[in-house]
Design a protein around this nucleic acid. Structure first.
Lengths: 316, 316
DNA sequence: GCCAAATTCGTTCAAATCGTTCATTTGGCT
DNA sequence: AGCCAAATGAACGATTTGAACGAATTTGGC
């Protein structure tokens, strides 16, 4: 698997991009980019086997000097992150976390975009960068290392960047199946349910997040009105376990009678609690969710890489 | 073969279109469009081979300024222009409200794009369409006419569409003044503070919303750390009036000692309560906010119309 | 060190765009 | 109405672009 490499030259780390990545980044076809390389418009290096590798500096120069300056150099200007492989995702997690904590929207955006360019599927991106970063943030918060506003601001930025990224994903064949869901009463955590929505959309579903803090009675109403194929509940915080149990179970009974799958997720729902709950499937992560969604429907033309063919990136 | 491409320009996901597409979309000949490009009426990029590529922001700016309407919006992936004329704002409010309640993201998006293309400033859009629609929704909710999930879903959609719209608007001089703010403890209402952020950005500021439900102590910390020119508090819900008063007042004292303006807003803060609060300015609406922001800083090149020169559209 | 999967290579080819020229329409003026 | 300048839209060969293909290469895992 080909991909940009990080070549250590003494202390200087030089990043190389593949034509595919650069083409994607500046919005031209791979063919054109290769042609420009061969014409000498863009200077490049070649591997021993003849694969083109474009140094970041050269790409930036090309963008500036040719009238072709489509892209802000900042996009590819990310010095230390590019390529795929175990290290990249792990490093992205750290960069993303730091960007969120320090309120640096710009870097947060670049990290995600870089992952997108590397064909990391959205589900994996969320699991291993998004969620992982927030786990770190949560820990740091409990240790008093970061302040509340930093966490909140991080959520805001993450949300915004995620919106921007997925705005690039066309969605919704009109006859695609419908997924719908949200969080229960007392659970104010928007990000998780939005992530679920976006992952479903990246898989070709029509998906709508209902939002947060919705009583079970209202969730049932939504279920009855819209009759989705999958109804998800994202549980990041449980106010009252007994009420939660009762709510989920009655929701499941309703869903089952309608032929709707009830998909439950969230780290708050531990194994013990799970035993007392009825649901169609439980998803620990977006990759689980993706796997389950695919048992229900496979989009004819996946618009985002779907992960099954992307097993090359290790879990941290 | 041309096709819309997705690239990244530092801040936003940008879509490039070919002259043919844009020509079809706005219903003029390709020749004319090419001529306009060459005359500089529409700013464009060129590929290495000399083909013209038009950024969506530039197309939208041209549409606004030239008064052209979109004939075939599907080509650009944009919503269609539904109405033009005086009643736009009033009608939009109703359409937007209904779209939010029924969960119709498409229509909600279309309404906002319509308004943008009609040269409605963002502040006015928010006051008279966004806020007005939510006022209607709030009323309907109290009367039991709509369900909780419908309101929540409406918030989700509104938020998403607002993000999408402002992603299509260029913003942000790097050395513009900084505005920052959020909501206090107990106030979970995200939309308002996000709107504030976006209005500031549309005026050329650098703005960051810290998010919701932030204790005053943490707000103070954010203030000290970032030293913004304006710090806003959006109050949609007040948990404890006495604590709120104390918090705001001490926040103001801190802000004042730092030369930061404290901007307070939100309909929950009635006139009586206001008398007991210290603040630099109070904004009833985004248009007030805009007016105040302009006393502090005026962007050299406003990217969104600023309202004062836009008297052609009646208020409902 | 070897294998399988994924990516890239190099090529070909159809479709789209370029820049230009020219006929037609539009709008202002007498 | 008649005239003229400006703007528009259509048509043309030359050039550029994007997609597809089997073959070669790279990569990560065992």
């Amino acid at each position: 698997m080909p991909s940009p490499q990080i070549i250590q030259t003494g202390q200087i780390v030089q990043t190389l991009f593949t034509p595919k990545q650069v083409a994607k980044a500046i919005g031209v076809s791979e063919s054109s980019l290769k042609r420009w390389c061969d014409q000498g418009v863009i200077h490049m290096k070649k591997t021993a086997g003849g694969h083109r590798r474009l140094p970041i500096q050269e790409v930036m120069r090309f963008l500036r000097e040719s009238g072709h300056s489509i892209v802000d150099p900042a996009v590819l200007g990310l010095p230390s992150l590019s390529g795929q492989g175990e290290r990249v995702v792990a490093r992205s997690r750290l960069m993303f976390r730091d960007a969120l904590v320090s309120g640096n929207e710009e870097i947060a955006r670049r990290v995600l975009y870089d992952l997108y360019l590397s064909n990391i599927p959205l589900s994996q991106m969320i699991d291993q960068v998004f969620a992982a970063a927030f786990e770190d943030i949560g820990n740091a918060w409990e240790c008093g290392q970061i302040d509340i506003f930093e966490e909140r601001r991080g959520c805001q930025i993450a949300q915004k960047v995620l919106f921007e990224l997925t705005a690039a994903i066309p969605y919704g064949l009109p006859n695609a199946p419908l997924a719908m869901g949200g969080t229960c009463s007392g659970d104010q955590y928007t990000l998780a349910t939005i992530c679920v929505e976006h992952v479903f959309r990246s898989l070709g579903w029509r998906a709508t997040s209902l939002g947060t803090n919705i009583p079970f009675e209202s969730l049932k109403l939504a279920l009855i009105r819209s009759k989705p194929k999958i109804f998800w509940i994202s549980a990041s915080y449980i106010e009252d376990i007994d009420q939660f149990r009762e709510g989920i179970n009655s929701l499941y009974d309703l869903a089952e009678s309608m032929g709707t799958a009830l998909l439950l997720g969230g780290r708050t729902v531990d194994v013990e609690l799970r035993k007392t709950l009825r649901y169609t499937a439980f998803a620990d992560s977006m990759q689980h969710l993706e796997a389950f969604a695919k048992t229900q429907y496979v989009s004819p033309q996946p618009e985002m890489p779907t992960g099954e063919s992307q097993g090359n990136v290790e879990n941290e």
